[in-house]
Design a protein around this nucleic acid. Sequence first.
DNA 1: GCCAATAAATGAACATGTTCATTTATGCAA
DNA 2: TTGCATAAATGAACATGTTCATTTATTGGC
Lengths: 216, 216
Amino acid sequence: MADTDIPDSDATVGQRERNKAEKRHRIEEAALALFREKGYDGTTTREIARRAGVALGTLFTYASDKRDLLFLVYNDRQDALRRDAFGSIPEDAPFADQIVALFGPFYTHFAKEPGFTRDLLRELTFYTDGVQAPRFQEGRLSIVARIRELVEDAVADGRLSTPEDPRLIAEMIFGLYQSELRRWLAGDKPSKPGGLAALRRVLDILIAGLGPRDAD
Amino acid sequence: MADTDIPDSDATVGQRERNKAEKRHRIEEAALALFREKGYDGTTTREIARRAGVALGTLFTYASDKRDLLFLVYNDRQDALRRDAFGSIPEDAPFADQIVALFGPFYTHFAKEPGFTRDLLRELTFYTDGVQAPRFQEGRLSIVARIRELVEDAVADGRLSTPEDPRLIAEMIFGLYQSELRRWLAGDKPSKPGGLAALRRVLDILIAGLGPRDAD
DNA sequence: GCCAATAAATGAACATGTTCATTTATGCAA
DNA sequence: TTGCATAAATGAACATGTTCATTTATTGGC
């Protein structure tokens, strides 16, 4: 009966935590499948509970509310996308190329599920209350932080030459990315190349400036 | 009783339309007051109906759903703000000054009701279905169109010198405005001067560019 | 003025998100 | 092993957005 004391590979933690992890996983799977099939608004919490094989109330021990359920699902994907994104940045390439490469995996993924992404973009606005919110917001911050590093590197080796705060530049670029993303998703059938081309266009303008060149 | 036939100054239109206009007005007043007092989520449609003195179902002959009610309220204010905004643009001033002046009235108004504005920003995301949506979207388009004119004028007289499409520039500026607005409203007690200063900062960067200056 | 046609208003019924008192499962000490 | 303490799960009850068959009001033609 020492089996609760044997730390085998699957159970360094207790039964309770293993049950929770499994249940959380079932809920994530069910919610993801349904959000994909029927959209966020078209999915009911009862359906999610039924498909996950748990009681209705159980959902709300894993997420604060329905919106939080959306991020319970998305947070895992955001982590994966971010790893992917950070991995695809070419070194010593032009700055705009680096930014476009960074956002490439996001566009690839979002193009597959424009409906889901639209729901996400609506729900993430001033999303701070849910249990899943901190993890989501940290993810975004780490993307902005990475952009800031890219700016700093580019300024250091002369690919950029702005005297402005790299953090501010990074926030501007992230803001432009978001507004381009919204415009892209407002269209009928958003294609990855089209979206990235539009993003590159605004980045080029940001880098070139609106002139006149020596107006100070 | 020919009084229904007398077209007095208030009634060139029929009884039916007058009733509707009055009812719509009462609903707008009630919704506005409640959204201000208790926020969008904190207000129930039943309360709005009760305060407006109409039955619950009546609301939904004036708005498609609760979200639409938010824009039934906001559309009038948007029109007023836009008139105000267009009227405060100084001629022949530096381009950035003109843009900051244009958005000034919006910041003034939003600073008074940050909660309401946050709700608005969430709900306007991909808002296309409601009866009130077309009017709202037309309002935004006319703001972007005005910015585009400002860009064209500025390029024409040399205050700006970009070869890029003025429409695209206008959309970029509007996008930057929106993301700055969100950042501003994410703070605790958004102040107008602070918000406008942040907006000006990003505009200056956009105009100056990230350099290097003669990289092509 | 009366009547049929049409528009608007109504609120009970329904659908769905959320809460919470109760029940069940797990961990831990004796 | 037993029993208590704590965590988790449960689903009925509730709150609130939305629909729609029915009722009421308005209009235009006779």
